[in-house]
Amino acid sequence: MGTLIITAYGIFAVSAFARAFYQITPFPQEGKVQFVDAPLALTLSAFAAVVYMVATLALARTSTSAWRVALVAVLIEMVGVIGVGAWTLVQPELFDVATVWGGFGRDYGFIPLILPFVGLFWLFRHRP
């Protein structure tokens, strides 16, 4: 199960990074929203990518310090997906551009909402 969780986090790290990179790059493309048009949403996409990268790397290690880093990253992810998800419902005009955590991870099949709970369960079952 651990390998599956690490793989899921790795997929989300790559996916969130690619999405943020594409959205934030300054190269004008037809139909592409620029950073100046939606800085909050695009910054949140980049932040989610960093959180997923840190979680992936920490989950893949077995030290006590890596466990703590993974715990913090997964907790940040949980707060992020719930907070941003609620925020997108309250102020949808701020989120004209979709983010990984927007709508509680709606664009990703709500997996971003489920993944931190699974990650926390696994972390507490495998505490060093």
Rank of each mutant, 00 (worst) to 15 (best):
A41G: 11
P92Q: 02
Q91M: 11
L4Y: 08
R68D: 04
V118L: 10
S15C: 00
Q91N: 07
V74D: 08
L89C: 04
D96N: 10
F12M: 06
W87R: 02
A49Q: 01
E77P: 03
I82T: 14
G10W: 06
A18M: 12
S45V: 11
F17H: 03
E77I: 04
F104S: 13
R61F: 02
A48N: 02
A46F: 11
A13K: 00
R106N: 12
E77Q: 15
M78Q: 13
T3V: 12
I76P: 11
G10M: 06
L75Q: 07
F121P: 01
V84M: 08
Q34G: 06
L89M: 12
P112C: 07
S15I: 00
L123G: 09
L115H: 07
S15K: 00
G10V: 07
W101T: 09
G80R: 08
T88A: 14
V79L: 10
A86Q: 03
G119R: 05
W122L: 14
V74Y: 01
I111Y: 10
V54I: 13
F124N: 05
V54W: 03
A20K: 03
L94P: 00
T62D: 11
S45P: 04
F95R: 05
S45E: 13
P92V: 03
M78A: 15
F17Q: 04
S15Y: 02
T64Y: 01
F104V: 10
R127D: 05
L4N: 08
W101F: 15
T99R: 06
M78N: 13
A13F: 00
A13M: 02
V84G: 05
A70I: 00
L89V: 05
T56V: 05
L113Y: 08
